[in-house]
Design a protein around this nucleic acid. Structure first.
Lengths: 257, 257
DNA sequence: TGCATCAGCTTGTACCAACAAGTTGAGCAA
DNA sequence: TTGCTCAACTTGTTGGTACAAGCTGATGCA
């Protein structure tokens, strides 16, 4: 074991104390100057160590307040069931999942006609820059920012579903609305990626700079063509994506060897 | 637009120059002292700005060498096809995916009998601490560390598949091996999460501390019981997880409106 | 030629100082 | 009591200095 620099020893010591409950989630750490006295280090060195914990998403700092141990609370999102089609639902998939978890969903909407960005054009099989309907959605759970969602629809869909451009929510969910008009989503292709948030994303989701985002890109297909491309951006520390595939009857039952 | 601190202005300027190709992937940034002169800032301020870029995974620094712009080449992993069952394969799912991408896979193996950690016990429906077979695998693509994989099998499976404890690879893939013994995986439950790497993970995967990891937990089920729980840890910046669900015939065809 | 050494570059660690800016609670005034 | 001000805390930003440690190429010796 090679000798670690002082700021890292400090970070490791604090990490241990957070793990073992000396500083439980929600608790405040001692101030920088107190830690400096305890570890016989300068304030800058203490800040280097604390910065490591912030980067790892264990604590968050606020000017004037101090450092607070973050509480993580993971929210499970079931991504693989067939949206709105396999069983009855009243709202969209998000509201359903959140409500089932006993939480309060809310969201703000924005609808625009936009030239398709490269990723959307490619997936929707339209020329780059072609006009698309963009429905943008900023979602909250119990008033905490949870995700942003941008869905591009190809322009030709408007002939069949003019309400796509209506500002505001479509109560029964857009997938269900389109299915009622004969444009049924029969399959989808999901891509899941992760990266550090852009400054914009960090601001929108009110997340620490050291927490990754999860990007969920879903391209929905009718029997003949792609009909939508949705990119959802989650706080990575608060969400988990689930897929159920194949026969899972053994999952819910008691185990029989 | 409020005034940003100097170190952030510096980070934003460099980020733009990386994006627009002034510093392409693999290029070296100017040294800290050169940047200090250019931005009329102290070396400490420059380091704060560069640290932001490191945290966001855009650049990496090495002592004595300088700052290098990271090149990321994303590897797509198809997670939803039915492993080894729906079509013939020669090796395991990983080798197949990597080879199909024209890359050279390699891996190191380790097999142990281990008490089940909490997450595995829960998913395998065995008591916490019950003995399980742990097959641990460290995978490389073109000799670059790519992922670690830890699979727990319940102990009762050994009666049917004793080769599980053999050190070294099982050539045809464990899932296929078990299927040949009558323990067929008929479904699986996937969970995908993301977080910052632990120091150990950062070392094993040779990744910057500012790059998130992607955790892929797959629990496989036979018709009657869970038969394995696999946790794969990826570099988040180099991997993307794909799921194909439902009828995707429209995906590969030319579009017909 | 071949090899060891070292100067001169790079980043890493650690310290000090000063002031800006956000938060809170004590205490005073209406 | 209510409400305001302000002192005393907190972290945020920016400057400075010094030395440690890693890398590279030039230099010079064998």
């Amino acid at each position: 074991m090679t000798k670690q620099p002082k700021y890292r020893q400090l970070a490791d010591a604090l990490r241990r104390e957070i793990d073992n409950g000396t500083y439980p989630p929600g608790a405040r750490l001692p101030s920088e100057s107190e830690l400096a006295a305890r570890f016989e280090a300068s304030r800058n060195t203490v800040r280097s160590g604390l910065n490591e914990l912030v980067t790892q998403g264990l604590v968050a700092s606020s000017q004037g307040l101090g450092y607070e141990v973050i509480k993580h609370e993971v929210f499970q999102l079931n991504a693989s069931r067939f949206e709105n089609l396999s069983f009855p639902q009243t709202g969209d998939a998000y509201s359903t999942d959140v409500t089932n978890a006993g939480r309060q969903p809310s969201q703000t909407f924005r609808v625009e006609m936009q030239p398709a960005p490269e990723y959307a054009a490619e997936r929707l099989k339209v020329p780059a820059g072609a006009t698309t309907v963009l429905r943008f959605c900023h979602r909250f759970v119990d008033d905490v920012p949870w995700s942003t969602q941008a869905t591009h629809y190809p322009e030709w869909l408007l002939e069949k579903g003019p309400r796509l451009t209506e500002p505001g929510d479509i109560a029964e969910g857009t997938t269900r609305y389109l299915a009622g008009l004969g444009v049924e989503q029969v399959g989808y292709f999901d891509e899941i990626a992760t990266r550090m948030p852009t400054p914009d994303e960090a601001r929108l989701l009110e997340m620490g700079a050291g927490v990754p985002v999860m990007l969920w890109t879903r391209t929905g297909y009718s029997a003949t063509a792609p009909i939508r491309c949705t990119v959802t951006t989650f706080r990575g520390d608060l969400n988990r994506m689930n897929y159920e595939i194949g026969d899972l009857s053994a999952r819910s039952e008691d185990v029989v060897q």
